[in-house]
Each structure stands twice: as C-alpha cells, then as structure tokens.
Nucleic acid binder design. Structure first.
Lengths: 297, 297
DNA sequence: AGGCTGGCTTCCGTCCACCGGAAGCAGAGG
DNA sequence: CCTCTGCTTCCGGTGGACGGAAGCCAGCCT
C-alpha cells in the first residue's frame, strides 16, 4: 500500500548529503550505528539537523516545521530549539517562527575562509565593482562545491542566481571552474567522474571538454564562462592565491552575455579581473603575486 | 522579509537556570547541583561553550586550548570537537589547530538581521562610501550591545576599532547611541542604570547627559559622536527603520575628528547619512520612509 | 640513548541527562 | 459548543554521554 521506504516521513526541507570531504582523519564515527530512524544520532547531530532545516528559501520556520524537517518528535525539537534560542543560535520572532540568530552569524564570521578572506579582498572587489558597475563575486571551494563568500551587485546589473552563503557545483560557474582547475587532483577526478548536471544548453557536461577547459584555465590564469548557468550572463574569473601559493579562492565579474542585448565583450574585462585577483593574492601574502606578470601576448 | 525579530533580553552567556524544581515530590535532593566544574550543563551548552572559545583574537585554537577555555576534560572536548569538525562547524588546519568552519558561517549567513539586512543595505552603503571614501558602518542592537553587521573601510581611512561581527556597548558609539535612542524603554533604562564604561576622556558617562543626548537624537534623527571611543575619530549616525516602522538598525560614517589634523566638519555629512538611512528604510519597507522629509531647519 | 613533557587519541564502565509519549493549553475555525 | 493544529510541560526509563586512565607520538633536554 504505502511505500514504506523509510521510517522517517518524506523530508521536505532536507538537503542532499554532503559530498564526501576528502582528507578525513578518522573522524567518521565508523561505529556503524543503528539504522537511524530519528534525525541525528547524538545530541550534537540532532542540533545540526535542526540548523540544516534552514536554507535560503526557508529562513523562518515554526517549531513543527523544524521538527518535521529534522525528523524529530516535537517535544524533542522543542527542548533543543529552546536551548538554541536561549543561547542566540536561533531567534524567535513575534510571529512565533524561529530564524537563525545573530549570535550564530557572529561566531560564523570568525571563519577565516569567509569574513577573514573577505575583509582583505574587499578593497580590490570595490575597485573592480566600480570599474564595471555590474556584479563582482568572491568564492571558495568546499568539497565539490563553490561557496560564495561575497557578492557586490548593482541593482540594475544582470540578475544573478548566486547568493552569499550559497553553493554551486564547480563545473558550471566561472569561479567554480577556476577553483576546480587548481584543486587537488583527487577532487578534480572525482568531479570529472561524477555526472555533470546541466543548467542551460551551454553547460559543459562532457568530461573531456571540461578537462580541456580546465587545462586552458591553468594556462591562462583566467576562465571565461558564457551562459552556463544562465544564458544571459557571462563571467570572467581568476584565481586568488594564499601564503602557501595554493589557490584559496576565486573572483569573477559577471556581465550580460555578448549574445544578449547590451552584451559585453569579455576580453576587455580580463586585465581588470586578473589585476584584482593578483592584488588580493598579494594582500594575502602569496609569494608569486609579487613577480611581474607575463604579458598577455 | 519581515523584521519581526525582536531582540531578546540580553543574554550574553547565561542559560535558563534549570527550569525544573517541580514542587510536590521532591526529587533527589542530593541533586542540588554539582559544583558545575564543567562548562555547560547540557551537551548543547557544552557545544556553545566550545564555540565561545573562539573570538577575534583567537581564531585558531588547539584541542587543549579549547578544552581549557571551555573548562572541559580533554577527552570530552575531543569527542565534541570531533563531531563539530565532522559536520563542518569547525575545520582543522594542517597545523592541527581548529578554526571556525565555512559551514557554520554558511548557516549564520541565513540570519535575517545580518546578511539579509546587509544585502538590502549594501547599495546605499556603497554610495555613502563613495561619497566620503572613509568608513561606513551598519549595526544592529542585540541586548545591550551593538553588533556591527557590515563595514566598508578605505585602507587609508581612519583606523577603526570596530570589526564585523564585533560588539560594542551602546552608549559610546554613533550607531550605538542611535540604536539606544530608539530602543524599548526597558532597554534604555537598564543601560542608563548600569555604570557607563569610559573609553576616552570624551565618553559620556553621566546618565543625565546621555539621556539628554538620546532625546536630541530622537528629535534630529541623527547622532554625532565625537571621540568617544577613539579621540581621533568622529561618527555621524542615523536610524534605519523596518516594516513595522521600528528602528531595526543604524548606519554611520566615521571620519577624522575635526579637532585632529585632517578633520572634517561633521555637519556636511549629515544629509548624506540621513539620505542613505532613509533609502535603506525604504528598501526594507518602512512606511514613513516614503513621506517627504521635513527640511533640516 | 633514555627520560620527560605536552598534546592528541582511544577505550570502556558508570550513571545521569536526554528522550519522547502523553497530557495540558491556547488560539483559530466551523 | 466541539474540533483541529500547534506549542508547552511533565516525568519515568534508558541508552548515550562522560571522563579517568592508558596508549601514542613529537619534540626537547640531559
């Protein structure tokens, strides 16, 4: 009769399991815990499940919604949510709904790869933004996805799908391709091996083509990505290097695609993006950023 | 988006002191409470204590440092930290030290009062920044403190002590005074009743003076705060209103104090700051922001 | 070498904090 | 009135968390 797939009800707000983060020490519990009918196994796990109930499309949830999303009994959710709210990780509005609290954001802003990076990059992003008056983005890699750390958008610029704190697969965006091109080989292979989801007719989905594209990015130090997420927009991206000279982030400018009305010829943007990326790299202490750039032919 | 989130009572670290104490059958009296040697009482509490070990001056901590800061046995800290790192709330560097993880920042960026607010305010802050090329700040109130949500700083501008995600008492900063002036009476009274810490010779420490200052801010819709945190800098701040017309945030421009070399006459900044605040209020849906402003005398 | 220190990790028996069903409560709707 | 939905409180039973102890690994001193 009913499809008794899982004990837990359909998970409306759930999120796909995280892509395996490589390089794990023995942190995986490996205890082969029980079939996990409920949400998390440990208290901490349940708390995480509760936090995961929130996303960009669900910034305010009632207690029951949280309980449902986290597959927890209401009374359990109530207790945990109460504690979260008591500390400030969640806030309860006058409407009774819970939202992510300022306190949690406050702690999160201590993450070196987010606000720390952003702070150093900001002046250069500003300049880049002034030069184009379009969209400027800063992203880092987490696992097999790119996470947008900063975004400056002119109200009248091309509408973007990305959001601060949002994630996108690496193969479809300018910054993503850059991050992928300079990622550890293991990550590259894993991404190339998995099916490449398509967003528009122009998205690269062929691993061979992507591999060639990545090689080109490594050679040029720039990625130009036209209409892969949204046919109307084009992005020019460049890598940002850190102290150890590894690529720690990527920046991009997103403008209307040249095939669209009001489109811009990407070649004109390359020098500015490259210069900004180099500036940030220098600010981060990247050794090679001080050397003179080989002329662009 | 709504601004229905009301700032909870200032609850810096505390937790409800064990709601229990159900009368009637006295449960095990010996329960009283262990001398509370550990950090928190509940697992969740301990996790919070661990997160609290991190701050702007300690963004990277080793396991033992965390354990010490959270007053937890190393083995307990090890287990909890392991789980936190497994989820992504913490990240472990190659040096073995733990840092706040990108995942935590990601969730934190869903807080309506931080990134949500920031996104809508950004264009106006940009303009304000362009106009002055100094420092522009955006802050909200949390309890009895102001939390800086955004800060645009020119590398050559006056050095500020504030940081994104940082907290400052309300009475000493421009944005703080604005937030306090429009805070619920209970909050105002509480702040006025408590001793007002002094940062420079110019900090207001007399409740009577502060009360008068707040009244002036409510009247003018602007605060001018000269040298109260740092003798060399002056800030001009204005309130930002939300949907329900309540003050939800404050913005400010910080420039060199007129008494310092290169100082700027604050009066010239007032219109720009007021206009930006009004623009943000309108973007947030504040009803009164659409009315014409009464001319500035 | 050997001993020592300081930090990290694993193990496992004890015990108490967490769990969650059930009941009570408040508000909206019929 | 009753019903329904969602939130809150209560409390007995138990399984997960606790943390001391021991093992491990580097680095450092003698």
């Amino acid at each position: 009769m009913t499809d008794a797939v899982e004990a837990g009800p359909s998970r409306p707000v759930g999120r796909p399991p995280r892509p395996g983060l490589p390089g794990g020490s023995g942190l995986t519990s490996s205890k082969a815990r029980r079939a996990a009918p409920g949400g998390g196994e440990t208290v901490t796990g349940r708390v995480f499940t509760i936090l995961e109930a929130f996303d960009h499309d669900h910034t305010a949830l009632t207690l029951t919604e949280i309980a449902r999303a986290a597959s927890l009994p209401v009374s359990t959710a109530h207790r945990l949510v109460g504690e979260l709210a008591g500390w400030g990780a969640l806030e309860r509005g006058t409407d009774g709904a819970y939202r992510i609290g300022l306190r949690l954001w406050e702690v999160g802003s201590l993450a070196p790869r987010s606000v720390g990076l952003r702070e150093r990059a900001m002046p250069y992003l500003e300049d880049l933004y002034e030069a184009t008056r379009q969209n400027v983005q800063l992203a880092v890699r987490d696992g097999h996805e790119g996470v947008y750390v900063e975004r400056l958008a002119h109200p009248e610029a091309v509408r973007l799908l990305s959001r601060i704190g949002g994630r996108w697969p690496l193969h479809g965006t300018g910054v993503g391709q850059v991050l992928l091109a300079f990622a550890p080989p293991a990550v590259q292979e894993a991404v190339l091996a998995a099916p490449l989801t398509s967003f528009t007719a122009r998205t690269v989905t062929d691993p061979t083509v992507l591999r060639r594209t990545l090689a080109g990015i490594r050679r040029d130090g720039v990625a130009v990505c036209d209409g892969m997420i949204d046919l109307a927009s084009l992005s020019v991206a460049a890598p940002v290097r850190g102290e150890s000279d590894g690529v720690v982030a990527a920046i991009s400018v997103v403008v209307p695609s040249p095939s669209s009305p009001g489109g811009i010829e990407p070649r004109t943007l390359v020098p500015a993006v490259r210069a900004a990326a180099r500036g940030i790299s220098r600010a981060l202490g990247a050794p090679t950023a001080h050397r003179t750039q080989r002329p662009v032919r």
